[in-house]
Amino acid sequence: MTARILIIEDEALVAMELRFVLEDLGHEVIGMASDARAARKAVDSGGVDLALVDIHLSDGPTGIEIGRQLAQDQGVTVLYMTANPGMLGAGVAGTIGVLSKPTDERAVQTAVDYALRRRNGQPTEFAPPELRLFG
């Protein structure tokens, strides 16, 4: 299953690596945003299935709220990717979970596959071990 994915990450090299991994898996990366304003603009263009969201962006720790807004207001499936998973506490309502950075291609692939299966109402017996699910 292919998806339209938005990468919200302020480190350009990390964002590019994610883009390559996702495109190799057959997904369409519809944009990369490094701050809250750019993320909202990308989503306003429509058609986002999944957003991979870092917490600390170029405008500060705005990723938590961006993820919440995308999930609750726009119906986007949200996975956080951060080196600071503890900042998410017990989780963020409406979002799936967090993948700790640094990570590898296999962990990204299994987490994205899991998130997309959940989005599409398909069976998801077990989450990948690298993915901490919320609620």
Results as ranks from 00 to 15, higher is better:
Arg4Lys: 09
Arg4Phe: 12
Ile5Val: 14
Ile8Lys: 00
Asp10Val: 00
Leu13Val: 13
Glu17Val: 13
Glu17Ala: 10
Val21Met: 03
Leu22Asn: 04
Leu22Gln: 04
Leu22Ala: 03
Glu23Ile: 02
Glu23Val: 06
Leu25Glu: 13
His27Thr: 13
Val29Tyr: 04
Ile30Val: 07
Ile30Ser: 01
Gly31Ser: 10
Gly31Pro: 09
Ser34Cys: 11
Ala36Gly: 12
Arg37Pro: 01
Gly46Met: 10
Gly46Pro: 09
Val48Pro: 04
Asp49Trp: 05
Leu50Tyr: 10
Leu50Gly: 08
Ala51Tyr: 08
His56Met: 10
Ser58Ala: 14
Ser58Phe: 05
Gly67Trp: 11
Arg68Lys: 08
Gln69Thr: 09
Val76Thr: 06
Val76Trp: 02
Thr77Gln: 05
Thr82Arg: 00
Thr82Gly: 04
Ala83Asn: 05
Asn84Met: 09
Gly86His: 07
Met87Lys: 06
Gly89Phe: 11
Ala90Arg: 10
Val92Lys: 02
Val92Phe: 08
Gly94Pro: 01
Val98Thr: 13
Lys101Gln: 07
Pro102Leu: 07
Thr103Tyr: 09
Glu105Pro: 03
Arg106Ser: 13
Arg106Thr: 15
Thr110Lys: 02
Thr110Ser: 10
Val112Lys: 01
Val112His: 02
Asp113Glu: 15
Tyr114Ile: 13
Ala115Asn: 09
Ala115Pro: 09
Ala115Trp: 12
Leu116Met: 15
Arg117His: 12
Arg117Met: 11
Arg118Ile: 15
Arg118Asp: 13
Arg119Ala: 15
Gln122Lys: 07
Pro123Leu: 06
Thr124Ile: 13
Phe126Ile: 11
Phe126Gln: 08
Pro129Thr: 14
Glu130Met: 05
Leu131Ser: 08
